[in-house]
Design a binder for these strands. Structure first.
Lengths: 157, 157
DNA sequence: ACCGGTGAGTAGGAAATCCGAACTCACCAT
DNA sequence: ATGGTGAGTTCGGATTTCCTACTCACCGGT
């Protein structure tokens, strides 16, 4: 049935990246989460070509990650905003930003600091919903659900 | 000085994506974290063209995210493994996978389940390091550190 | 010694994407 | 009437990606 060559491991990471993994897509989401949802703001803040940006926006709207809302009839003007699904990607952005701050900037010149409502700077920590412990690679065991797709490493089934 | 057109917002998300945001890069990291670090395994499990994969691997090794280690001299064979920096990207993958499971698969056909050492299934939650609360968009305030780069939204400075 | 198989890539041309700049169209301001 | 803004679209050319095939080194069986 299915060909032997060319059907990669079924995976939600791959599926997610197929949607938001194209160049600029996650930066669009960043700006939109910051409240900068207008076309020309996006062009300036992201540095993307206008046609590519238009394509990305269409795709993200179609995927239900963004909505396009009119904020002015007569001159008709639009603004893009995150949907619930879009907002749920924000933790990914925050985690990625923290990683970049840690590994791509030796000194403390972080271009942006996020403040949490608790009054402190927000440093994201990924934890296990069940036990609350911060996630450590050694504490994980991956169980593929599709027959034929194994894992070989220390994280074997 | 700096040109008026074309210098996007300085941002660690953008920097991080410049490194690991190219097609397949994060899938390479996924496989490597699963312990499948050999070239042909990567080709099969990811479905990437061999030449592109070779390019990505070089880049990730150069960036200090992966290491290439010999696991057999005489037939010389290599295996790619995550460095500490690479492992610290795993939470990003887990969060992205959970998002994909939630939003891209209505029913419960998750292709992979991750088990935490606590005995339960690992569902990642991004929390604030300072207060431990799960991160909610409304609880965040972004403060750009570079003059001229503002945020307009509800998350204004 | 020969044959087939595996691992780790390279080579080459076709196909898809991306890019920058210019263009449109509708509206408002002076 | 002229200029400016917002939101795109259109264009040709540059850059990447893709796919298939090829290499090279080695191993295992007969």
């Amino acid at each position: 049935m299915a060909a032997s060559t060319k059907d990669p491991r079924p995976c939600s990471i791959a599926d997610a990246l197929a949607l938001v993994g194209e160049k600029y897509s996650l930066l669009v989401l960043r700006e939109v989460c910051l409240g900068n949802g207008r076309f020309d703001q996006l062009v300036r803040n992201i540095g993307a070509p206008r046609d590519i940006l238009a394509t990305r926006l269409r795709r993200l709207v179609d995927a239900g990650i963004l909505t396009k809302r009119v904020y002015s009839e007569r001159p008709q003007r639009f603004e893009y905003r995150p949907t619930q699904a879009g907002l749920e990607l924000e933790p990914v952005l925050l985690t990625l930003m923290a990683w970049g701050d840690r590994h791509l900037r030796p000194d403390d010149d972080r271009p942006m600091v996020v403040e949490h409502i608790c009054g402190n700077e927000m440093l994201p920590v990924v934890t296990c919903a069940a036990c609350g412990a911060p996630v450590h690679h050694e504490d994980l065991a991956a169980h593929p659900q599709t027959p034929g797709w194994t894992v070989t490493g220390p994280t074997a089934a």
